[in-house]
Design a protein around this nucleic acid. Structure first.
Length: 816
DNA sequence: AAGCTACGGGG
DNA sequence: GTGTACGTAGCTT
């Protein structure tokens, strides 16, 4: 029989010598099944034809003992594959189970044979080999198994085919969030219990589910609250709810790194099994550095990972806290509750726990909303790189690009080069290339700024000039050298693998943009199309970085160097032509160009842009980015030239665009952040004297000692036992003080401190907030307040002396 | 200047 | 799970 389903979670098992991929899938009616499909693991080896028969015989007899099962070669096949542009013969070696691949290939390498595609995860291998795309419609041929050892029916498939690239959009999602006992910011699962756990779910019909479980008795009229007797009961209820609700997707915020590991540790402490998997397996926490949490048959999506790695670049926020991310993406913030007081409230004022329950549920709700909002993006990325969504969201760009290339390699009969070994990585890390061209801005406040941008500059260059490891230094096109890099050239006759798969990304996006336009004209929903377009754009933009990334399989530094060389050439040409048209250039960086209108019209600037575009090859294009009545460029500390990437613009509607200022950076006191933002605004609005007065007032307040300590707090985490520190920072000093006061210091604890008045090294004066000591106003003035604003005032001719209310210094005084 | 360590998110 | 993040900021030596 044939069935149609949407696979969303994957694993493999070896049963009676057969290797099965388990495709946990969703049916159209909302039910879940698991499709088992046999697949044979393999890798490739480069063998000289002379040795072929000898090697085949040796492989035939090769048996490697291992803890579980003997690793053996099952069969071999001679194939022709293309490796870095060269067609060659390889031996495709099938082995008896996935973990035999590293064992056997290592053995072959010890014989002096090069092996390839020996470190590709088996499930990933399967998806690529069969062209199966997760979360989209596949058809399986086979039979349902009579008995299932899983919590869902099992379908044994003889074949599986991709039917459509259209993904399923209706999934049953459950978000979870826990609150734990943490006095003095001490987050320690070994010692402190889980106090409450919140669920927020939504099913295929849009039906919502809310629940908060806690184990402290108190009165409330919260209908979603369930009170149990102790933590053990809480954990049991957690297990029960997970099994009963049976979500397809489980989500949370930092649930890979916090909620699930914490739950697992607490369950272990109480000898409770969290057998949540559809195969009865336990919640699995992978350790050693990167923490990941997985439940078999349930797609776990930690929104933090996806947002930080994939979406992050397009967000304004610099902090990836749930609070700031939700504010930007959802327009909702977290509930205002002082989480520091939870432990105290739990111990002595349980009647006030209602607030924390609401807070708990709200956090789960935010995680759910983030998941819902970003699900189309997640699905589109998953489709593009052809990997399980659970793996995709945990990847950085280099791996995403590589996965995309790998998924395309099949149809081009391309063999993947190996990842570099440690020695190779070290060597690659030492190499560098010349980067982008930057036209240094002169610090100042400017009028009538027009900004132009090359759309997707690097991808369009790579595609237009056929840049890739396969086309580098062909024997036919030596005259076609790269500008400024005459030692490099790329084939002009034949478009090769890397630029081809990149060009396809660019073309697909061009096509999508047209579809989006049409859909919008017809008032149709464009959410999925836009998610697809975004995924394509991000992936295309990452190719350049990938080619120069030390860990890449298709590493090609010459390619990366040539890409930037072409880019420098294009932007310099643009600048030259703009100057010929009498536009003053004030700034240019990589792909953008800021010019002043002067006495010319905006239309004339756009005409200039069209002339540039006439000469560009391939899909290259210069675009109009915007017109800004005012712009400010500040100087780099202690330098005459303008700071690269440190400027602010204000558009006709008065909206500010701030780039590179400390306001958006962490590890600054609240005081410095607040003041910088306000000053920038006032200066941009031409309220120079108001800005000066404001800062003077703030300095006075700081010096008088009236600034609230809370605005001066610096916060750092303790990451090890205090005795293990060899270098002692101020936070360690502060932590030692806490310890002397009888506090237990644990790794993971956050230490708040401020710099107090006194003599000696700064770190020796790190004081605890509760020590009512006066702060060091000099430190905060010279290390926080002034550094945050001095460069801004410098632009409008206000000196540090003026800010400090000193008389203007001239001549020699300047040098002291 | 190089080398080492801590940071992120979570309570 | 055919495994062992990552890039950078800030400090010390």
């Amino acid at each position: 029989m044939q069935i149609k389903c949407y696979p969303y979670d994957f694993e493999y098992q070896v049963k009676d010598g057969h290797v099965y991929v388990y495709l946990y899938s969703k049916l159209d009616n909302g039910a879940k099944i698991c499709v088992l499909h046999e697949h044979q693991p393999f890798f490739f080896a480069k063998i000289h034809p002379i040795d072929l028969e000898t090697i085949k015989k040796r492989l035939d007899q090769l048996v490697i003992k291992s803890e579980r099962e003997e690793a053996k070669v099952v069969s071999v096949e001679e194939v022709e594959k293309e490796l870095l542009g060269k067609k060659e013969k390889f031996l495709k070696i099938y082995v008896n189970y996935p973990k035999a691949v590293p064992l056997i290939s290592k053995e072959l390498e010890s014989w002096g044979i090069n092996c390839y595609e020996k470190d590709i995860l088996f499930v990933h291998r399967y998806l690529r080999d069969l062209g199966i795309t997760p979360m989209t419609l596949v058809q399986a041929e086979g039979e349902f198994s009579e008995k299932s050892e899983l919590r869902v029916p099992v379908f044994i498939a003889s074949r599986v085919d991709q039917l459509s690239k259209e993904p399923l959009h209706t999934w049953k999602i459950l978000a979870l969030d826990i609150e734990t006992y943490a006095k003095k910011k001490e987050i320690n699962p070994e010692k402190n219990p889980i106090l409450m756990i919140a669920f927020y779910g939504i099913d295929e019909q849009g039906q919502e589910f809310q629940k908060v479980i806690t184990w402290k008795n108190f009165d409330s009229n919260l209908n979603y609250l369930e009170i149990v007797s102790d933590e053990v009961e809480l954990l049991k209820r957690f297990r029960r709810i997970m099994l009963d609700y049976q979500p397809d997707i489980i989500t949370g915020y930092y649930s890979d790194g916090f909620d699930f590991p914490y739950l697992k540790t607490r369950a272990d402490k109480h000898n409770l099994k969290l057998d949540l998997g559809l195969d009865h397996s336990e919640l699995f926490i992978s350790s050693r550095g990167k923490t990941e949490a997985n439940i078999t048959g349930c797609l776990h999506l930690d929104m933090f990972k996806f947002i930080r790695y994939i979406i992050g670049g397009s967000l304004k926020t610099d902090s990836y806290s749930l609070d700031s991310v939700s504010e930007e993406l959802l327009g909702h913030r977290k509930h205002k509750v002082n989480i520091n007081e939870l432990a105290q409230t739990w111990d002595s004022q349980p009647e006030k726990l209602v607030d924390f329950c609401e807070y708990n549920l709200h956090d789960a709700h935010l995680a759910l909303k983030l998941c819902q909002k970003l699900l189309s993006d997640i699905i589109e990325f998953t489709k593009l790189v052809n990997l399980p969504a659970a793996d995709m969201i945990r990847m950085r760009f280099s791996r995403l690009v590589e996965s995309y290339i790998l998924s395309r390699a099949m149809e081009f009969n391309v063999l993947a080069p190996n990842r570099p070994a440690d020695a190779e990585i070290e060597q690659r890390m030492e190499e560098s290339i010349q980067g982008a061209f930057v036209y240094e801005p002169t610090p100042g406040l400017y009028q009538d700024v027009v900004v132009f941008d090359f759309r997707s500059l690097y991808p369009t260059i790579i595609s237009a000039h056929n840049i890739g490891p396969e086309s580098l230094h062909c024997s036919c096109c030596q005259k076609n050298t790269v500008p400024e890099r005459e030692e490099y050239w790329f084939c002009e006759r034949e478009k090769k693998f890397i630029p081809t798969v990149l060009e396809q990304l660019i073309l697909r996006r061009v096509d999508l943009k047209r579809l989006i336009k049409e859909a919008k004209a017809n008032n149709e929903d464009t959410k999925m199309l836009e998610a697809r377009s975004y995924a394509l754009k991000l992936l295309a933009n990452s190719f350049y970085g990938y080619l120069g990334f030390y860990g890449a399989r298709w590493y090609c530094l010459e390619c990366a160097a040539s890409t930037t060389a072409y880019a420098r050439n294009y932007i310099k040409t643009t600048i030259k032509k703009a100057e010929q048209k009498c536009f003053q250039i004030i700034y240019a960086d990589t792909d953008s160009c800021f010019l002043l209108l002067g006495d010319q019209h905006l239309d004339q600037a756009k005409e200039f842009m069209n002339e540039i575009n006439f000469d560009l090859p391939g899909h290259m294009e210069l675009e109009f980015e915007g017109y800004f009545p005012r712009g400010i460029f500040v100087a780099l500390k202690g330098k005459e030239a303008g700071a690269k990437k440190k400027y602010a613009l204000i558009d006709e509607k008065g909206k500010m665009k701030i780039t590179g200022f400390e306001t958006v950076r962490r590890n600054w006191s609240i005081l410095a952040k607040e003041i910088q933002e306000k000053v920038l605004r006032l200066i941009m609005e031409d309220k120079k004297s108001q800005a000066l007065e404001y800062v003077k007032t703030m300095i006075k307040e700081l010096k008088s000692g009236q600034v609230d300590i809370s605005k001066l707090i610096l916060r750092t985490q303790i990451t090890r036992e205090l005795s293990q520190y060899s270098s002692i920072g101020p936070h360690v000093y502060a932590a030692r003080k806490l310890q002397d006061l009888g506090e237990k210091i644990y790794p993971g604890m956050m230490i708040d401190y401020f710099i107090a008045k006194g003599t000696g090294l700064v770190r020796e004066r790190a004081a605890l907030p509760e020590e009512s000591r006066p702060y060091d106003s000099e430190y905060y003035l010279y290390h926080q307040l002034l550094p945050a604003v001095i460069s801004i005032f410098d632009v409008v001719g206000i000196t540090e002396d003026e800010l400090l209310g000193r008389s203007k210094q001239t001549g020699l005084g300047k040098f002291f």
